[in-house]
């Protein structure tokens, strides 16, 4: 379970997140939508402590931290409970696909080599890249790289996987294979928070859609409500614009 209470993030005098309250159940698939620059990515980055939130409390699993007083150990622990999938994949360029996935198990979880690589191979097979075990990121397609990026997040055994626009950098031909893998994860009830502009993914896969604007949650609910019966004018406006170019 993830619980955010009055989570806020300021960059200087700019308020990017303005008191977010949010509870996400285990196994829930949450898709976050909203105009660009409204704090969607920052929200995910705060949960993973890639950004230090300015105020609020955060609970992931059985660990609750007051973000202002978070110690180094608490930050590390939070990061280990949350996995992140980056827009630009961010694979380790000096490591093979297999090593990218095994890295966390070896270094962070201190698994013995054999066990870590066995697990990494299982994940590679799951993401359909078993034959790419020894390939380096530079030699893989964008779609393959992002699938490894997701594989790396899966290895963490994290409470939640945070997807930050996972298909936005991909050539159109690779988008489906990445969304397919995400659907597969969703069907296994892996808790996920996804920031995306793929509205059909939101409609088909999400348990809940959250619309964020100006650093606040404006509206949230099941996709059927948000997409077909939005209440707030800002939600209506956003959906009208995005559905014109990205129909569901």
């Amino acid at each position: 379970m993830i619980k955010l209470e009055s989570l806020s993030k300021h960059f200087g005098t700019t308020v990017v997140l303005d008191g977010i309250d949010l509870t996400i159940d285990k196994g829930e698939i949450v898709v976050i939508i909203g105009p660009s620059g409204t704090g969607k990515s920052t929200l995910l980055r705060c949960i993973n402590f890639l950004e230090q939130p300015t105020a609020g409390t955060m609970t992931v699993g059985d660990l609750t931290v007051d973000v202002k007083k978070a110690s180094r150990a608490e930050i590390l622990s939070m990061r280990r409970r949350t996995a992140f999938v980056f827009q630009n994949y961010a694979l380790f360029a000096n490591k093979t696909a297999l090593q990218n996935i095994a890295e966390r198990l070896l270094v962070v979880d201190k698994w013995p080599k054999e066990k870590a690589y066995r697990r990494a191979r299982e994940i590679l097979d799951q993401i359909g890249l078993g034959e790419k075990a020894d390939a380096y990121p530079a030699s893989m397609s964008g779609g393959q790289q992002q699938r490894v990026g997701i594989g790396r997040a899966m290895a963490a055994g994290a409470e939640v996987i945070l997807f930050d626009e996972p298909t936005s950098s991909l050539d159109p031909e690779w988008v489906e294979e990445v969304l397919g893998l995400m659907k597969q994860l969703a069907s296994e009830r892996q808790t996920m928070m996804v920031v995306t502009h793929e509205m059909s993914f939101a409609r088909d896969v999400a348990d809940r859609v959250i619309f964020i604007d100006g650093g606040r949650i404006v509206e949230q609910g099941p996709p059927s409500e948000i997409f077909y019966n939005p209440q707030d004018p800002r939600t209506k406006d956003f959906l009208k614009k995005i559905l014109a170019t990205n129909p569901v």
Partner: peptide, 25 residues
Amino acid sequence: DRSQTEAALSIGMTNGQMMRRIVLP
């Protein structure tokens, strides 16, 4: 690439581990 150092931190590496395993090589 900064995104790689972020990725290293995101999986829970310490700064030292990140330097040793990802950045310095």
